[in-house]
Nucleic acid binder design. Structure first.
Lengths: 354, 354
DNA sequence: ATAATAAATGTAAGCGGTTTCAAAATTTCA
DNA sequence: TGAAATTTTGAAACCGCTTACATTTATTAT
């Protein structure tokens, strides 16, 4: 059943049916009703492909994340998806498995899709090809909104976190708990969260006059296995750290794995503060202090930014295309894993802290 | 840039371009090359909306899950998505938040979408409306594949688990560890996993001549909070169980929360076996014995089933439309949480067990 | 070499909507 | 009451692709 059938049945033209369907003004109330009655009687549904073709645009957007199974991204998807439904968009979901090649493939395959917009957590900040493709989307009037990670020199809208501040707070918390030998397991330098959190770490050390030691700053690349290896290396230093700032949730799992396998107990042998909460730990012996973020809300926000971008572009096109970049505040949730018996449960007293 | 521009540039007709694009036979190698050169030179991408409209079908499918954030579904999505890309499909993602109304809304909104297929974990087995809508999709030649949960009387293809056997093994494991007072926290009776796992539980008790006690079988509805409440009720019975079979991952979290809050230690005060693994626990003090499933693979399998359904329908239509329902085997991973000091770490010895 | 056959290409009609432009119907106002 | 202004409607072109059918070109067999 299509618009012509409806038209015939209602004794009007297709143009009129179309107007009714799209809530145009200038449709007499009586004819509107006539058409609506037919539509309700039969189960007519307008063909979206035809609509898309005719209008040169769709109500579809895509979300591309590096790791579908990471709860952080799942939560993000949840928020974004809810808001998308609210706004009447459908979302295509893709995972790149942290692989730039795959990311490019996906973007490439989406070029034919008449996407209305794109929300993306890019694998790397430095993929020129990604930038080129994203720019093409933007030019084809499919705005791009980034989340969490950036694209260098891309100048895209985005929802990010105050990563460095979050990291600073995490590390400061460890310092105030009495630690001075604090390691960080870092994410790749090709991602904002990677280098910004490292920056926060360095800032905190600097503020308290703690020397930065290169060997305390291995990469875990935000991956469990690599982080496990990094932790292992840290603990086999001749002078191992007493605390570690785990700069990502997967990283934290890697650390915990090492702790468990080597019978290191948090609070007795080692301290840890993580970035991004891990819900499942709440009910275990691990009372993890973490830098937390409103992840669901970030997803929602990304969708809102995207819609705004879609609408303003539709209107002002060349005019007001200023970039909207939000930096979401983090929050330190103290649960105790920053302390360590060896150091004495020094509240903030043991060091000269303001 | 469209197919006409390409045609002009290459000095051929649009039909020829179309043929080249779709790898038709009967295209001379030389003209094929001519066209391809033009396509590569300019950056032509065929408009999928036009294609969809013209062919009356798309390469899009939808995945509808009840809870986007549940790692089980995330894993499922991962497998499905990977396989979908492999097969050249894009997947729309939706979450129903375990709400039948929302489920219906989503299905309703998808009717216009020319979907090629639908993969779904329905909220409830008993939603007549859902069944009606799904049947409509199927009739509109968009096959439906269910995962994990069923639709009563729907007769849809699907990938399920051997839930009862899995549950049976879980409970038997507890029995062999010496327990006789074993509770279950159940899922809703309106879902296959809900009642099948309960069935497995009952079977196990029956086999070992253990009386079934109604008060040991509260509902947790596969939700953390409800399961927490259920656990609380269980432990405040005058004769509380010594072990619990937690029939779902969220349920397990609810139990763990109760244990932690009430200082019950697994292995000392209580035993537990779960259904569906919880990765994050691996590195904590909780060595959870669980019924595990190849979740990623189930997602892959669902996509394979879907494609088969799409293809056979395209071909044999009325002919061979027999339903394909796979029942995936579960696997019990013993990690120790089935034991309990109070009972003596009875291997299988303490009861007469074959 | 030529008719018969097969292969390659082109023409044009859809697919199901939206939208411009003109015509018809209605309302407003002198 | 009739012309002008306004609202409501319809005819038909268009979006960009596929494909049935017609036509041209190449190949094969006689």
């Amino acid at each position: 059943m299509n618009i012509y059938d409806v038209a015939k049945e209602a004794n009007v033209s297709v143009a009129t049916v179309s107007r009714v369907l799209n809530n145009h003004k200038n449709v007499k109330e009586s004819t509107r009703k006539k058409v609506m009655d037919v539509i309700k009687g039969k189960d007519f549904v307008p063909n979206s492909a035809a609509k898309n073709l005719s209008m040169g645009e769709s109500r579809n957007i895509a979300l591309i994340v590096p790791d579908i199974e990471n709860p952080f991204f799942a939560k993000l998807l949840h928020g974004l998806s809810d808001q998308a439904i609210e706004f009447g968009y459908n979302v295509f979901m893709f995972g790149t498995d942290e692989d730039t090649e795959r990311e490019l493939q996906i973007l490439e395959s989406l070029k034919s899709e008449l996407l209305r917009g794109l929300v993306m957590i890019p694998v790397s900040e430095d993929s020129e090809n990604t930038k080129v493709l994203l720019n093409r989307f933007r030019e084809a009037s499919a705005p791009v909104v980034l989340i969490d990670r950036d694209v260098r020199g891309g100048d895209f809208d985005g929802v990010f976190s105050q990563d460095d501040e979050g990291a600073f707070n995490a590390v400061e918390c460890l310092i105030k708990a009495g630690h001075r030998k604090i390691a960080i397991i870092r994410g790749s330098d090709t991602s904002r969260p990677g280098y910004e959190r490292y920056r926060g770490y360095k800032k905190a050390l600097a503020k308290y006059n703690i020397e930065l030691r290169k060997e305390y700053c291995p990469y875990g690349d935000f991956m469990e296995e690599n982080s496990y290896q990094a932790m292992k290396k840290l603990m086999s230093l001749e002078n191992p750290p007493t605390a570690v700032f785990s700069s990502n949730n997967m990283t934290t799992l890697g650390c915990l794995r090492y702790f468990k396998e080597n019978n290191l107990k948090i609070g007795r042998d080692i301290s840890i503060v993580g970035f991004d909460d891990i819900k499942e730990l709440r009910y275990t012996d691990i009372d993890l202090t973490v830098v937390d973020r409103p992840v669901y809300e970030m997803g929602v926000e990304a969708m809102k930014l995207l819609r705004k971008a879609i609408e303003t572009r539709d209107k002002a096109d060349e005019d007001g295309l200023f970039v909207k970049r939000n930096f979401i505040k983090t929050r330190l949730i103290k649960r105790g894993s920053e302390f360590c018996e060896r150091l004495g449960k020094g509240e903030s007293g043991s060091l000269d802290v303001d």
